[in-house]
Design a protein around this nucleic acid. Structure first.
Lengths: 193, 193
DNA sequence: TTCATTTCTTAACTTAAGTGAACAATTTAA
DNA sequence: TTAAATTGTTCACTTAAGTTAAGAAATGAA
């Protein structure tokens, strides 16, 4: 399990055994049951998550309705905005499958950065990459219709459509569950006739 | 003009005179005329921009149509995704006003990072903050109707509505120019009766 | 200044998404 | 195992966005 993390890190910076041991000594690996909530609206938190196996989602509760805005699966990192802004969280984070992840807080991060400055480089590269990736995702969302977004998702993350309940996918795509149902029926119809 | 940049940086890390002089020696300040294109689709670039005065926008050309996805105004930073991915740019960047900005490339950045490691900390903090901010923007976009997005924009960046042509604002809000016109008329109507 | 271009608005019509409700299928919990 | 809750689909109806077109207003260039 640790190897997945180390392989991931090694893509960005090389790691010595000493550094690996320091990371392991922090005891950051967690097994979480499906349905568990990791972060609630209004809570303060310093925790970042790296998903090794499984899936977590972020969602808001607006007018009593859940609005799912993101899914994080294998090899993806989530640092909730409240960790950066140091304000109470605006949203929930929960596991939609049994999930294995690492939980690291900003204190631990600072501690590692102090011992191994190259860790700061890793964090910089990672957040720059994530920012660029998310800019493109946002641009695609803005310039596409709901139907195009769904077709785009089939291309880019086909497994997500299998793993995730439709009504959560719907708000992720910016539409109501009924509209997603209809839109899918429309696509199937097109492929037939 | 330099002071604006140094004040901005000082919010994140303290700067010595030596460091300031090193930055100044790089000759990064540029005055750009309205309408100038800074980056074209298909071009490779290593340049990041920090807007001191004026406004730049990013836009795609899809099916012969311009799709504006972002505006960067005073005190905002843009590192185009192509700089991170090291691939040809998918979009254009151009000035929609006479603009004063800094242009810094990744080689210069590495040079400074080598001399002053605290610069790496600055970059890390900046991109983490930008990532968090953009996550929230994206979430708000997903969970709002076009009308709500427009009302939200009036709250958050009222000056933008004055500075920017409507048809560019429209694609920024994810609708056609005609829909933005209609939507605005609808809002005015509501406030009357 | 004048002409051409760009920008913005309005309108009529088409298409698709939102809404409320019903129902079947599936999952969860007692 | 059964009842309750959740989930997904369909339908009729409403509302809003996309499309096409026309014309007015503003802008820019010759």
């Amino acid at each position: 399990m640790q190897d997945i993390l180390f392989d991931f890190i090694s893509k960005y910076v090389s790691l010595t055994e000493e550094e690996k041991n320091t990371i392991l000594s922090l005891d950051i690996f967690r097994s979480i049951k499906k349905g568990t909530t990791l972060l609630k609206e209004g809570q303060k938190s310093k925790d970042s998550y790296f998903v090794l196996k499984g899936c977590i989602r972020t969602y808001y509760v607006l007018d009593g309705e859940e609005k799912t805005t993101a899914f994080y699966t294998e090899m993806e990192v989530l640092t909730p905005p409240c960790v950066i802004s140091k304000t109470p969280s605006e949203y929930y984070v929960s596991c939609i499958e049994d999930t294995i992840l690492t939980v690291s807080n900003s204190d631990m991060e600072m501690e590692i950065n102090r011992k191994f400055p190259k860790f700061e480089t890793l964090c910089k590269i990672l957040s720059e990459e994530l920012l660029a990736k998310q800019q493109i995702d946002f641009d695609e969302f803005k310039t596409s219709s709901p139907e195009k977004r769904y077709l785009n998702l089939i291309q880019k993350r086909p497994e997500l459509i299998q793993r995730v309940p439709q009504h959560q996918l719907a708000s992720y795509l910016g539409v109501k569950p009924q509209s997603l149902s209809r839109l899918r029926a429309r696509i199937v119809g097109k492929n037939k006739g």
